[in-house]
Design a binder for these strands. Structure first.
Lengths: 338, 338
DNA sequence: CGACTAGGTGCAATCGTTTTCAGCTATTCT
DNA sequence: AGAATAGCTGAAAACGATTGCACCTAGTCG
């Protein structure tokens, strides 16, 4: 039989209300009383029941997190950012993998809402009308991390995938390349897939280079896609001289594919990745990549959520974090003319 | 104002008790009544309050998970196994990073207990008396995943680190090596650190090879440790011909360190890793490594926990999962004499 | 045909807190 | 000195479900 607040009250010779005040740090308690209560708590080994508290106070200090796949390096890093800030603000996190399956995403959202979380952080790819429908029934704030809703209604934290794709391609163009291939993410993914690809196209277009379909391989962001993409590119009569991959995993696959065929990176082909997961530094040559501040996206999203949960004023509900290109050895140093 | 069970009862013209029965799938409800209630629920958009339910039923269908670092590939994979099985059994997971700091581990345990989780899965390295003290105050079952308590009281799921370390070393010995170095994990870690190292020593000992201190580098399981370890080994007059690293990250660091110095793997030096994280396949040469069934450790631990939570009989409270060596290209193919 | 049984339902207590409100004491102000 | 105020405290009503128990209706059995 667990110790309740009532037991403590009896032991300390006060009312439950007073015990509650002590536990919650309410200043309106005489120091001597506080001491008595604390002693009773200690003596009895009292542990407040957060479920009862949640029911009475209507706050659970718990937030829900929906994540496509926690075993992916990218999302794990985001999750870490979320968890750190959450714990800083004394929140706990209910974490669930959605596998990016719509049905599961919606079901999880409902479950979290039933559990009375104080807020939700959602990671995924596409935000459909189905999502919006469920999200709008929520009485608590929802923040998107690493994605963005097309209507721009929901608060979100992300980078500009379009500009990032553009910058990466432009980087290769500036290095003098004219035959630049791309390994895209799934085009069904509006951001990591489509927008990065659109950035690529825009950069080519601006440079007066026409996009060739044979220079585009539609991957799934995983390592194996990179290997396969290279196979396609190397079979071409006019091979590309540079490859931009929409994820680091694919980029590393690309590097290995190139090396396996006896060519060298960056001498024969240059490669640029995307994300800057730790893997980017654990490959030879180390990968030049678009740095996405994954940890920060998670952290900022969580911070944003706390503001909503506390009814604080929020100036911008859509946050775009900066990206940049980290040059390593998978591309050649560009000569800077002075 | 959210819809409560009472609103549904009124709308359907029945009592709260009946609504509760319908919601919980209690068979003692006339089909026509059930239909009415379901209609009312649908119409009102009723969402049961799990907090209230938790208070009344004393079950939250939530389990706590304490993890050292979710952004580590190893633990993320474990977490995935846990989450998959949890969701299969309709449990949600409260996930928190401990950073392996004792104080935080204990604090998190208490917080989870306050939140009335139905059970806890604990991942970490050392299980001290402090842990035991807190764990025994818990009214709910606690299962260790990827670790084991020295007293053998707590249920746990893990591999035999000692045997795995032994096998890896033996593998190298069988390949004809006599100068075998090891990059260990932190020796303060009794399992991934100490036990694997002890396995290494035993294998050497059995083979009549004496262990040399200069052939042992005390790493931290991270990539950089591997690089540094190689520096030490290569500075020796009598260099090792094979290196066993206690983690894949370190092993990849070792490979790159070797390559950076102009030597080749496996021709000049062979390398064996530990864990079999995805990285092991995303490096050239691909890494021969001790396969640890990370996902399964998580999954089995969660499954075990469900048994305890349902008061099912459990035959073995300590589960040792099998490990094996996956041969890839960082070691030479052993000639099998027929 | 009367007595049981079983299915279906509602009443009301309970879970362990928070929180409003009122009341009491002791102090401060005029 | 009397009134007003500030600081502490307790009583009791929520919070929104679950669940044991009693009750009622039909159907079944001998």
């Amino acid at each position: 039989m667990p110790i309740t607040i009532y037991d403590v009250a009896r032991e300390a010779g006060v009312s439950m209300a007073t015990v509650s005040r002590v536990v919650n740090g309410n200043p309106n308690v005489k120091p001597t009383t506080r001491k008595k209560v604390l002693a009773a708590i200690e003596q009895l080994g009292y542990r407040p029941n957060a479920v009862a508290r949640g029911l009475a106070s209507k706050r659970t200090t718990t937030v829900g997190v929906i994540i496509p796949d926690i075993s992916s390096a990218f999302f794990a890093e985001l999750a870490r950012g979320i968890d750190d800030i959450a714990s800083m603000y004394k929140y706990n996190i209910i974490l669930s993998d959605s596998d990016q399956r719509l049905e599961r995403e919606l079901h999880l959202t409902n479950t979290l809402l039933e559990k009375q979380v104080d807020g939700i952080i959602f990671m995924g790819r596409e935000i459909t009308e189905n999502h919006m429908e469920v999200f709008t029934t929520a009485a608590v704030p929802i923040v998107l991390a690493g994605t963005k809703d097309p209507t721009g209604q929901l608060p979100s934290v992300d980078i500009s995938h379009f500009e990032a794709g553009y910058d990466a391609t432009k980087f290769l163009i500036n290095a003098g390349h004219t035959r630049i291939a791309m390994v895209t993410g799934p085009l069904g993914d509006p951001l990591a897939g489509m927008r990065r690809f659109e950035g690529y196209k825009k950069a080519l277009d601006e440079a007066g280079l026409s996009m060739k379909d044979s220079y585009v391989y539609n991957g799934n962001l995983r390592y194996e896609s990179g290997i396969k993409a290279v196979k396609q590119f190397l079979s071409l009569v006019e091979r590309p001289t540079a490859i931009f991959a929409a994820s680091d995993e694919m980029a590393v696959g690309v590097i290995h594919g190139i090396q396996d065929s006896g060519l060298r990176v960056p001498d024969d082909m240059e490669v640029v990745g995307f994300d800057n997961i730790r893997l980017a530094e654990m490959v030879r040559p180390r990968l030049t990549t678009v740095v996405q501040p994954m940890y920060d996206i998670g952290a900022v999203a969580m911070r944003l959520l706390t503001k909503y949960m506390n009814n604080e004023k929020v100036e911008n509900h859509i946050v775009i974090l900066p990206h940049r290109i980290e040059e390593r050895e998978s591309t050649k140093k560009i000569e800077t003319t002075i």
